[in-house]
C-alpha cells in the first residue's frame, strides 16, 4: 500500500505497472472478465497506460503516448486520487471510481460500453494495489 502522505508520481506509476501481475494472481477477477476484450487508457492523468485486455487478462500495459494507438475508453485520475483510492479504507469520496469522477478527481471518456458492461471488474482491477485485495462479488 502506498502511504497517502509520501506518494509520488513515480510510486503511483510503479504501482499501476504492477496491476497486470496482481490480476494474474486473482483468478476470480479474470473469470469475471472472461468475455472482455478491449483497448483502454488507464492511470494517472499525465502518465496514463495503454492497456490491452483479452479475456479478462491485461496482456499489455504500455506507457502512453504510443503513436496513433487507439483506445475505446479512458479512465484517468489525479495522483492524489489514486493514492487515496488505494488506501485500505479510503476517505469518503475517494473510495469509488465514480465518486472520483463526481468530485472532479477523475475523467471518464470515450466509448463507455466496455467499461459499463464490466463496471465491477474495472472497479476491482483498479483497486488491486489496495492490499489486501478486495473483490466484491
Amino acid at each position: 500500500m502506498i502511504s497517502a502522505s509520501t506518494a509520488t508520481d513515480a510510486a503511483i506509476i510503479e504501482a499501476f505497472a504492477g496491476i497486470p501481475a496482481l490480476l494474474q494472481n486473482t483468478p476470480a477477477l479474470i473469470a469475471r472478465g472472461r468475455f472482455l476484450d478491449c483497448e483502454c487508457l488507464l492511470g494517472p492523468v499525465n502518465h496514463a497506460f495503454h492497456a490491452s485486455i483479452r479475456q479478462g487478462r491485461i496482456v499489455d500495459l504500455t506507457p502512453a503516448p504510443v503513436l496513433m494507438r487507439s483506445w475505446q475508453f479512458s479512465y484517468r485520475a489525479s495522483v492524489a486520487a489514486w493514492t487515496e483510492y488505494w488506501q485500505v479504507a479510503p476517505r469518503p469520496g475517494f473510495h469509488d471510481l465514480l465518486a472520483l469522477t463526481k468530485r472532479g478527481e477523475a475523467v471518464l471518456e470515450g466509448d463507455l460500453h466496455p467499461f459499463m458492461t464490466h463496471l465491477q471488474y474495472f472497479k476491482d482491477v483498479l483497486a488491486l494495489p489496495r492490499q489486501p485485495a478486495t473483490v466484491v462479488s
Binding site: 473510495h95 469509488d96 465514480l98 463496471l119 465491477q120 472497479k123
Partner: peptide, 11 residues
C-alpha cells in the same frame, strides 16, 4: 449492482 457498490463504506 456495480453502480451502487461504491456507495457503501469500505468498513
Amino acid at each position: 449492482a456495480a453502480l451502487v457498490s461504491g456507495l457503501m463504506a469500505p468498513q
